[in-house]
Amino acid sequence: MILDNTILWQFDVLLLPMVIICALAALTIKDLVGAAIVTGAYSFLMCLLWTEMLAVDVAFTEAAVGAGVSTILLLATALHIKRKAKD
């Protein structure tokens, strides 16, 4: 039941750089549909990070809301407007 926190830093070392890379990629990709998908990946990695910090309810909500519904809404908007962004 009780987790020892020495096992956790390996996950962190893996996940935190990936989260930062996803955040940078979501802002730099010029194709808006691609940016929406990368935002979904960012949300899912964030959800894994919170599970590992034992915030199970928050991670559950993020998996359903952030990685699911938010991505769909961003995608729906990106398909309705011009796909190419200038920057």
Partner: peptide, 21 residues
């Protein structure tokens, strides 16, 4: 267990979104 109204409501809504997609 982990869960509650917000999460269950979002999953129910997502099932309708899946149908529409």
């Amino acid at each position: 267990s982990p869960g509650g109204g917000f999460q269950g409501g979002v999953i129910l809504g997502a099932s309708f979104i899946l149908l529409a997609l």
